[in-house]
Every structure is written in structure tokens, then in C-alpha cells.
Design a protein around this nucleic acid. Structure first.
Ligand SMILES: [Mg+2]
Length: 854
DNA sequence: CACCCATTAAACAAGC
DNA sequence: CGCTTGTTTAATGGGT
């Protein structure tokens, strides 16, 4: 109760200082870099448009005044901090927290945990439990912890331990928190190991794993200050297992041992159970015995040996994390500089170095458990996802700096930083490391890399955003991110590829110089030339395919029949006759089509002709909507689509052992399927020909409608539309057996072939298309969309300074990432062309590095 | 297996 | 100095 009172008066403390959003957009920062940051120094201003009303208040209630009786033995900083806190009523801490809270709220509009928490504090404040509960729980309790705990018990404001159900069984060992021994027992498959250092040292193994669920947690008593709910709760770390009540917890193989813990840290590949009131997270390499950490984040130098500590703040009644590592950390997407302490809520995201994880408090709701139980697995992710996506949606659009800006869509975190507090001068600019996104944090549509090649990507980007003067490298980066948000979330590295392409590929050239670097532009001539070549090649391939196809038929016919019509065929694809058309540059498909069309009159068409005619007609129907693509482009697309279809079907047939003319058979048996394949091929070809600019020439979802009109039957005399009416005259008994048309072909292989990587969304999904703005088709264009954006990019970052403060042991560590650069060697002012010397020649050997897709 | 090409990673140089 | 911009070289891997 007393505790409650403390909380209750928090109103006064209610911080009015809002979070400061430091958007330091120094020039070319990537949007993703635009993350929230909290720094102490910054003036406290409330983030715009954001008011948390009650929640915040509940959150940080309390002001100093706590008098805890802490044992002298407490030495950990966390405890000392507590003391300080109680004594001096540390404003900074609260302020900071408050700020962070605001920022956090702002970042996640819908944060359930917040609600839970507030709810708990208000509604569940009534608790009464025996202090002993906690005691029981550990035989191993560490000295300090134990003492602390005892001391606390009296106060009844200790956090509650809760049992978690664990997926792995090995955790029974003491001294090791769940699955983490770096040594022998390799528990979890995590690359990172965390462990309690030397169980023997006087420092107790802080953690103990308790297998028996009920023993410790009696839980009903809730102190208002207690961290979260105390109800015994179980969370599944891995897959849900029905047999939970197995009761046989001791079994090593038992699937669901229960672990008692205050909280949990969910890493991507392992889970750490917080079983003490103080956990140190940091770096420690295998052979480094100089220090110990509770959670070993691996050898990365960007992580300090003691990078952060999570502890329970009795004053505020919740867990908090102190960032002591040189490179700071992200807490709920807000960058927290070293020296700051921020509160943790259930599911607070934390990122240290390149390692993201989540702080999880036991949940009360059984409902959730149930949820997890069934859906589980990935479900958990989707769950988080929803939350996230919502949050993102609610955000205001962020804009890119220079030329680009975009409509509203989920945006990566903004750059906000929690700066240090104590010293106010901060010498270093404090570079905010890149936020690492978890799969769940990325909008589903931006999780996969676009199929476009870098050269295609660059071409598209430059065409879309570049001014005649060209674009800066950083502008290009931003353009790419705008074009494909995937690049906002993915780890860096692609920039190197971009530069590589700009330099190496002749399609891109330095147009003019601008201060630092160059303004890049396209060498349209070169590109045109290359296109030409590509097309030729494609056509040659198509021709070859057609020839092969025809040849195959011929054989069959001859074999199966006396065939006599061979002569007629030659008219269909003139130059294709030979297996190796050598060259002669076959004409466009349009020409071919024309020729065939004329020939089709002939009622005596043979299967080949009939088939080709059908395919051509379907192609024409399918591509009725040309989306402004030039005739040439369409011709190229049709050529390739035809080639793809023929190849694919033939191949599929071959693998199935089908001997006849698979195309003909398919056409007769299941024209719908054939249409689908054609449509897919058209889209694939379109994407390829247009370098991804246009992806869906044909709306896959309406193929049936579109093509319905033309059926093979109607076109030709062959009956059947899809029925069993299959005509055996084609001598391929193989096909018929499968009957059911289409079944003879593996749709999987087909789709894979036609739709390379992208997650195929067959049903037209108008809204999201991570793809390029569908507006531009061929030429340039410029854009015009826009409209929203507000952007501000105020780059002010008031740096604080300070630096020499914490000494701790956190010293080392530095990090940062990638690329280095440099200007460029030449310096000619304008139209010089450094790299494109030879340029488009007639025979570029093959130095061009780009382009093409798929 | 060779050859092409694209992607990545990185070393290095220059310029701010 | 630290970082960006460019150039290059290499290793890797998919495809043909
Ligand atoms: Mg170039």
C-alpha cells in the first residue's frame, strides 16, 4: 500500500519534458538512420502532436523519497543508483525516462504493454503475498541478490519471479541461465552465448533455474511496485507443446521445463532468462577471462565488455536498462547514448551492437498463452508484426532529403537520440549506429530484395529522380531507398554494390562535378546499344526455342505418322528453320505473328501451326493492354514470352516423360492452364525487358476472363476446351493419363521459372507493390506524385558533450561500419568522362557489368 | 568444366 | 582524423 501512495503522487513528478527528437539529417543520412535518439542534453520539448495523457503518468510515477533499506553489501551500481535515487530524487533519471517514454509512445502508438503496465499499477496494486515466496525460489540466490531480495521482501516491493516454460530441457543446470553455457553443454544453438560467469566465485551464480513450477511463485501478491504481473505464467520459447502438463519436468528430454525468472530476453537465436535483479550484458570473447557478463553478446568490438545492465529499480518499481557501452544502444528504436538509463516495459526492444533482442516480462493473460499455444511458431511473429505495422502506419511520412520524397507509407524509425546527461559537452558527434531491423519489424512487403539488378535499379532510379545535371551518390542511395524500401531496412552493404556498379558499368557516367563527388547520369547511348544486343539475343533464343519445338514435332509426326505436311511449316518461322539460326537477326515477333496470322487461314494447319497460332493469339489477347509500352518493347516481350513458354512447357513435359507435343496437348487439354503459363511468361518477359519498370503487363488474376474469349476450340477445329476430350491422335499417351488437364505439369516449377524470387502475389494487389511506381513505363518521366511530405530534416543536433565521464570498464569498443570512400581521382570539371573511354563500341567485350534481370 | 555475369566485400586513394 | 566517394580486385555463386 505504501508503495501505492508513492506512486499515486507522481502527478507532481509528471515530467513535462517531452522527448526531443533529434533529427540530424546531415546530408545523406538514410531514412533508416533517422531514428529516435535520446540525449539528456537536449532541451525537453514535447514531441509534436503527441500526448500520452495518463499513460505516461502512470508510467513514471513517483518521485524520490523512497527509502529502501538496502544491505550494505550491495555494491552493484544498480543498487547504488537506487540509493542515489532515493536520496536525491534524481531528476535526470526521471526526466530522461520521461523523455524516452514519450519517444517510445510516439514511436509505437499501440503499445499494449504500456497499457498492461498502467493497468497493473492501478488495478492490481492490491496484493499481498508472502515475502517468502521469493525466497523459496532460490537456493542459489547470489549473495547480493539474495540480500537484496530479502531486504526487499520486507518492503514488499520486489519484483516477482515467474516461471517460464522453456523449450529446451537442458536448462536444468544451475549457474547457467537457461541455455547458455558457452562451454560444454551448448545449449541453445545461439552463436552468442551468455552465461553466468564462474559459478564458484563468490559471486553467486545469479541465476537459478527452477524446474518446478509451482514452488516459487505463489503469486498472487502484487505490489504496486512490482515489475509486472506476478501470476505464474508460462511462455513458450519454442514451439508449443500439447504435453505441457506432462508433469515430468525433470526429464532431460522433457520438452517444457519451467524456468523461474523475472523476465526474459529474447534474442534471435536464443533466450536468456533474467533471474536476478541485475544482469550485465556485454562482450566477451571465448578466451577472455578478464571479466564476466551475464549475457555474452559475442566478440564484436562494437560492443563494450560491459555494455548495458538491466536491473530492477525499486524506486520506480520496474526494470530499467542502463546503457554504459561506448556505442550506446537502441531501446525501442530510440538510440540511447552511453550514460543513460531508461525504463523497460514488457516487450521493449533493445539493440546492442548489431544484436537486437527483446525484453519480455511474464504475461498475466492466459489468453496470450493460449494464443501462443496454438498458432505459435511464426505466429508470434505475425502478432508482433501487426503491432508494428500499425504503429508504422500511424506515423507521419518521412521524406528523403533531396529530390525524393514519398507518399505515406510505413516508415523506418526516425532518428532520435537520448544523449548523455551528466557532462553536457559531448565531444564526439556520437555517431548513431544503424538500427538493425528484425524481420518482424519490417513491413512484409519490404522484406525481400527486389529482383532488379543493381544496374536496372540504378537506371530506374536515375531516370526517375535525376535532374539533367545528374545525381549525387547520396541522392542515388536515397532514390533507391525510396524506390524500394527494402533498402531502408536491410543492412548496409548494398551501397558498396551501388558504387561498384556506377564505376564499373558503362551505363553510368559522371556527368558533372559537384563539390564533393560527381553527379551521375546515364549514358543513354550505351544503354540503348546494350538493349539492342540484348534483344537480339533474346530473339535468337526465341527462335532457337521455336525451332527446337518445331523440330521436336516434326520428329513426332514423322514417327507417328506419315506426316506429309512438313512443307507447310517452313512458312511459319522462316529463319527458325535451322537449329542454329546463326544470325540474320530474326525479325520481331510481330512480324512472325503477322506471317503466321496470314498462314493460319490455311485450314490444313498441322498441330504445330495450330499450336503456334493459338499461342500467338493468346499473347495478343493477353497483351491487349500495352500500358504505353512501345511496339518494339511489346514485340520483344512477346518474343521472349513465347520462348519462355515453349521452353518451359517442353522442359516440364520432358521431365514428365511426355513425348508428344506438350504444347499442343496442353492447349487441347487445358487451355486455361496454358493461358496462365503464357500470362506468367508475359509478365516475366515484361519485367525483364523493361528492367522491372513494368512488372505486371497482364493481370494474373483475370486471365480467365481475358482469355476466355479465345479458346483453342473456337479458333481451331480441335474440340475440347479442357475436358477429357483429349484427342489421342497426338500420339502422346503420356499426357492423357494424367487427364485432368494441367495436372501433367508441375505448376510449381512453372511458377518458379516465371516468377523468380519475388513473393508471388498472384491475386492482384493494387496497394502495395514494392515495385516501381507504376507510372513510368518507358521514357523518363519525372514524377509528380508527391504531395505529402513534410519533411524537415532539421539537422540540428545539439551535441552535448561530455565524454570523459563514465569510466567504468566500458571503455573500448568502437564500432561503426562500413565503407570508406574518397573522392575521386580525376577532377575534370565538366563533361569529361573518366571511365567511358571506349564506350559503346560495336563490340563491347563484356565489360559491362550490369543489367538484365532475372 | 569453363565462361559470363551479378553480387558482395574490401582494400585503397582522394578529397572534405 | 573520420567519413564519403570512387576505383579496383577478388571471391562466390547462379546459369549456361
Ligand atoms: Mg560507369
Amino acid at each position: 500500500m505504501s508503495s501505492e501512495s508513492l506512486l499515486s503522487d507522481n502527478g507532481s513528478l509528471e515530467v513535462t519534458k517531452p522527448a526531443i527528437i533529434d533529427r540530424t539529417n546531415s546530408s545523406n543520412e538514410s531514412p533508416s538512420q533517422d531514428i529516435p535518439r535520446i540525449s539528456d542534453e537536449s532541451p525537453h520539448a514535447v514531441s509534436p502532436g503527441h500526448r500520452q495523457s495518463q499513460r505516461d503518468e502512470d508510467y513514471l510515477s513517483t518521485s524520490g523519497e523512497l527509502k529502501l533499506e538496502l544491505p550494505d553489501t550491495l555494491e552493484h551500481e544498480d543498487f547504488s543508483k537506487l540509493l542515489e535515487f532515493s536520496e536525491k530524487n534524481d531528476d535526470d533519471l526521471f526526466t530522461t525516462q520521461e523523455i524516452l517514454q514519450h519517444a517510445i509512445h510516439e514511436a509505437r502508438d499501440e503499445d499494449q504493454s504500456v497499457e498492461n503496465l498502467s493497468t497493473d499499477l492501478q488495478e492490481k496494486s492490491q496484493i499481498n503475498g508472502s515475502p517468502k515466496d521469493i525466497q523459496n525460489s532460490d537456493q542459489d540466490y547470489g549473495d547480493k541478490d539474495e540480500k537484496a531480495v530479502n531486504a526487499i521482501k520486507e518492503e514488499t516491493i520486489s519484483p516477482r519471479r515467474t516461471s517460464f516454460e522453456v523449450g529446451h530441457s537442458e536448462s536444468s543446470k544451475e549457474g547457467n541461465s537457461h541455455g547458455f553455457d558457452d562451454d560444454a553443454k551448448g545449449t541453445t544453438s545461439a552463436p552468442l552465448n551468455s552465461r553466468e560467469e564462474s559459478p564458484k566465485s563468490e559471486q553467486e551464480p545469479s541465476a537459478t533455474i527452477i524446474l518446478e513450477k509451482g514452488s516459487l511463485l505463489q503469486s498472487k501478491r502484487h505490489d504496486s511496485l512490482a515489475p509486472v504481473m506476478f501470476q505464474q505464467h508460462e511462455l513458450l520459447t519454442t514451439q508449443a507443446d500439447p504435453q505441457r502438463d506432462n508433469g515430468n519436468l525433470m526429464m532431460l528430454s522433457d520438452e517444457q521445463p519451467t524456468i523461474s525468472a523475472y523476465a526474459r530476453l529474447d534474442f534471435q537465436s536464443f533466450t536468456f532468462y533474467v533471474q536476478t535483479l541485475h544482469v550485465i550484458i556485454g562482450r566477451r570473447s571465448e578466451n577472455d577471462f578478464s571479466h564476466k557478463v551475464d549475457v555474452n553478446l559475442g566478440p564484436s568490438k562494437s560492443i563494450s565488455r560491459r555494455h548495458a545492465q538491466i536491473f530492477y529499480n525499486f524506486g520506480t518499481g520496474r526494470f530499467e536498462v542502463s546503457v554504459i557501452g561506448k556505442n550506446g544502444a537502441f531501446v525501442d528504436d530510440i538510440f540511447v547514448e552511453r550514460g543513460n538509463t531508461v525504463p523497460l516495459k514488457n516487450k521493449t526492444k533493445i539493440q546492442i551492437g548489431q544484436i537486437p533482442f527483446q525484453f519480455v516480462l511474464p504475461e498475466q493473460e492466459k489468453a496470450e498463452k493460449a494464443e501462443q499455444a496454438d498458432a505459435m511458431e511464426e505466429e508470434k511473429r505475425s502478432y508482433d508484426l501487426h503491432k508494428l505495422s500499425d504503429t508504422q502506419k500511424s506515423h507521419s511520412p518521412v521524406k528523403l532529403e533531396p529530390v525524393l520524397s514519398k507518399s505515406s507509407e510505413a516508415q523506418p524509425v526516425k532518428k532520435q537520440v537520448l544523449k548523455k546527461q551528466a557532462p553536457k559537452k559531448e565531444k564526439k558527434p556520437v555517431k548513431v549506429p544503424k538500427k538493425v531491423y528484425t524481420l518482424e519489424e519490417i513491413p512484409q512487403e519490404y522484406r525481400t530484395k527486389p529482383t532488379l539488378s543493381y544496374s536496372a535499379l540504378l537506371t530506374t532510379c536515375i531516370r526517375k529522380y535525376s535532374s539533367p545535371k545528374g545525381m549525387t551518390l547520396s541522392e542515388i542511395y536515397n532514390g533507391i531507398r525510396e524506390l524500394f524500401p527494402y533498402y531502408k531496412y536491410c543492412p548496409d552493404g548494398w551501397q558498396s554494390s551501388v558504387r561498384h556498379n556506377l564505376s564499373l558499368n558503362k551505363s553510368f557516367r559522371k556527368v558533372s562535378k559537384e563539390g564533393k563527388g560527381w553527379l551521375w547520369g546515364l549514358d543513354e547511348e550505351y544503354i540503348a546499344e546494350r538493349e539492342r544486343q540484348k534483344k537480339k539475343q533474346a530473339e535468337a533464343a526465341a527462335a532457337k526455342a521455336a525451332a527446337a519445338q518445331r523440330r521436336l514435332e516434326q520428329q513426332q509426326q514423322q514417327r507417328a505418322k506419315k506426316a506429309t505436311i512438313a512443307g507447310t511449316m517452313s512458312s511459319v518461322n522462316g529463319s527458325n528453320a535451322l537449329p542454329k539460326p546463326s544470325n540474320g537477326k530474326p525479325q520481331n515477333i510481330s512480324q512472325t505473328l503477322a506471317a503466321n496470322r496470314a498462314a493460319d487461314k490455311n485450314s490444313s494447319m498441322d498441330d504445330h501451326q495450330r499450336t503456334m497460332k493459338y499461342l500467338q493469339e493468346q499473347l495478343m489477347v493477353l497483351t491487349r493492354d500495352r500500358k504505353d509500352l512501345s511496339k518494339q518493347t511489346i514485340a520483344s516481350i512477346l518474343t521472349q514470352a513465347l520462348a519462355m513458354t515453349i521452353n518451359q512447357v517442353s522442359q516440364a513435359a520432358k521431365s514428365k516423360g511426355i513425348t508428344g507435343n506438350p504444347l499442343t496437348a496442353l492447349m487441347d487439354k487445358n487451355p486455361q492452364h496454358l493461358n496462365l503459363i503464357l500470362a506468367a511468361a508475359v509478365n516475366a518477359a515484361t519485367s525483364k525487358v523493361t528492367n522491372g519498370t513494368v512488372k505486371q503487363l497482364v493481370d494474373m488474376s483475370r486471365i480467365s476472363d481475358i482469355t476466355k474469349q479465345v479458346k483453342p476450340a473456337s479458333t481451331v477445329r480441335k474440340p475440347t476446351s479442357a475436358g477429357p476430350t483429349y484427342n489421342a491422335s497426338y500420339g502422346n499417351g503420356n499426357l492423357s493419363p494424367s487427364s485432368k488437364g494441367g495436372s501433367s505439369f508441375d505448376p510449381t516449377s512453372l511458377s518458379r521459372f516465371f516468377q523468380p524470387r519475388q513473393p508471388s502475389r498472384v491475386t492482384a494487389s493494387p496497394a502495395l507493390e514494392p515495385t516501381v511506381p507504376q507510372k513510368r513505363f518507358l521514357e523518363d518521366n519525372d514524377e509528380e506524385e508527391e504531395s505529402s511530405d513534410s519533411d524537415e530534416s532539421s539537422s540540428s543536433e545539439e551535441e552535448n558533450s561530455d565524454n570523459s565521464d563514465d569510466t567504468d570498464d566500458t571503455d573500448d569498443t568502437d564500432d561503426t561500419d562500413d565503407t570508406a570512400d574518397n573522392e575521386d581521382p580525376d577532377d575534370e570539371p565538366r563533361g569529361n568522362d573518366t571511365n567511358r573511354d571506349d564506350e559503346h563500341d560495336s563490340e563491347h567485350r563484356g565489360d559491362i557489368t550490369n543489367d538484365n534481370s532475372e
